[in-house]
Amino acid sequence: MQEFYEIVSSATEEQCQNLAELTNSGFGHSPEILCDHIKYLRGGSIGQFFCHTSWKQIVTDVADQVGINWSEILDHRTWHDLSTQEIEDAVVVKQFQNMLEQLTPEQRQQILQDLRQESDDPHLEGFLLTGGAMLAAKMSGFGVYLLASTVLGGLTGALGITLPFAVYMGVSQTLAVILGPVGWTALAGGVLFSLNQPNWNRLGLSVLYISTLRHSRT
Rank of each mutant, 00 (worst) to 15 (best):
G143M: 08
L152S: 07
S172E: 01
L155K: 04
V171C: 15
Q173P: 01
L179F: 05
L135C: 08
S149Y: 03
A137S: 15
S140E: 12
V177H: 04
S149A: 14
L163V: 04
L179D: 01
V167G: 00
L159C: 13
V151Q: 05
A148V: 08
Q173H: 12
L175I: 02
A176H: 03
G132V: 12
Y168Q: 08
A176M: 00
Y168D: 10
L179S: 02
A166L: 08
A133W: 05
I178H: 02
L152T: 10
L129R: 14
G141H: 04
V144Y: 00
L152H: 05
A176N: 01
L128R: 11
M139F: 02
G141A: 05
F165H: 14
G132A: 05
G154S: 12
S172N: 03
G131T: 09
V144D: 02
L159P: 06
V151D: 05
L129G: 08
T130P: 02
A158E: 04
T130D: 11
M134L: 13
L155R: 09
A158D: 03
G143L: 04
K138M: 14
L152C: 07
G154C: 06
Q173S: 13
L163C: 02
F142T: 15
T156C: 10
G180V: 11
L155P: 00
G170M: 02
P164G: 13
G141F: 01
Y168E: 11
G132F: 09
A166I: 11
G170T: 11
Y145E: 15
T130V: 15
G170W: 00
G157N: 00
T156R: 03
K138R: 15
K138F: 10
L159Y: 13
T150V: 12
A133P: 02
F142S: 14
V144G: 02
A136L: 04
G160H: 08
F142A: 13
G180T: 14
G153A: 06
